[in-house]
Simulated assay, not measured.
Amino acid sequence: MLSLVLTADLQGVTELRPKDTEEDPYYYTFKVLCSSCREEHPNWVSFTRYEKHDIPGSRGEANFVWKCKLCGKTHSASISAGPNAYEATENNRSKGQKVVEFDCRGLEFTQFKPDGEWEAKGAETSTAFTGIDLTEGEWYDYDEKASEEVSIKDINWEVKNVK
């Protein structure tokens, strides 16, 4: 099991999460590594939690199925939990919070790219913030109800093994 863990400094917003609905799915984008031969795929790969693909030679399905070009083995991954909202707390800033968990078979995700839209709520006002772009590593806006700037800064993504 792997988890995508986020640490960030949220000012004036909370409940940061990818915009991920069946009608408008979020595409999780990663660099992927074969656990057998340790070859990393040269391109970024993307998949949603709503897609299901048959695993060759198996009766199972997974959100992401990949055949390593170097060793020829087929690997898979499925989202097993999440997406979870990232809450603005002091503890999350120091330890991070799991956004999504994956059940990976024969592969590892090594890097995450936050392509796609994210959403959050005003911490004091519950103002909805949509269309948040985290690709630049920070985001700024203004909460009219609170009459103050809101931001997401010091964003760090880690893919960690879950015990």
Rank of each mutant, 00 (worst) to 15 (best):
L134D: 03
L33D: 01
E23K: 15
L70Y: 05
E61V: 14
F64G: 08
L134V: 05
V99F: 07
P83Q: 07
I55A: 05
K121G: 00
L33Q: 14
P83Y: 11
Y27A: 13
G106F: 01
T130C: 03
A123D: 13
G106A: 01
R17M: 12
V32T: 12
S78T: 15
D133V: 04
F109H: 05
T29N: 10
L134C: 05
T89N: 07
E51L: 13
Q97V: 11
D24G: 00
F64C: 08
G57F: 05
D54K: 15
C34K: 02
S94I: 14
S78Y: 00
K113H: 12
W66C: 06
D115L: 13
V100D: 01
G131K: 05
G96P: 01
E22C: 11
D115S: 09
T29S: 15
V32C: 09
D20H: 07
N63R: 12
F129K: 04
T127D: 05
A120V: 05
E136V: 05
P56H: 07
E15M: 13
S126C: 09
S80T: 11
K69Y: 09
K31W: 02
T127N: 13
E51T: 15
F102G: 00
N91T: 11
D20S: 01
A77V: 00
E15L: 15
F30C: 06
G116E: 05
K19A: 04
F112T: 09
S94F: 09
E87T: 13
P83V: 10
V45C: 14
G106P: 02
E51D: 15
I79M: 13
T130E: 14
E40L: 06
G12D: 06
V45D: 08
F109T: 02
C71Y: 03
E136T: 12
W44A: 14
K121M: 12
W66F: 14
A128Q: 13
D24S: 08
R105H: 09
F102S: 01
K31C: 10
F112R: 03
Q97Y: 06
E51C: 12
T125Y: 11
H53E: 15
C37I: 00
G116A: 06
H41G: 08
S58W: 04
A77Q: 01
L33G: 04
T130W: 01
C71I: 04
E117K: 14
N63A: 08
G82R: 00
T110E: 04
P42G: 07
D133S: 08
F47C: 11
G57V: 09
E87W: 07
S76Y: 02
Q97F: 06
V99I: 15
L107K: 03
N92V: 14
G137F: 04
V32R: 00
N91R: 12
E90G: 02
K98M: 07
T29D: 12
G57D: 02
S126P: 01
P42E: 10
K31L: 10
Q97M: 11
C37V: 02
C68N: 05
K95M: 10
A81F: 03
A85K: 14
K52H: 08
G82A: 03
Y50I: 06
E136R: 12
P83F: 12
W44N: 11
P83M: 09
F64E: 02
T130N: 14
T135N: 08
E108Q: 08
N91K: 11
G131A: 02
P18C: 06
E90I: 14
E39L: 09
A81T: 00
R59F: 12
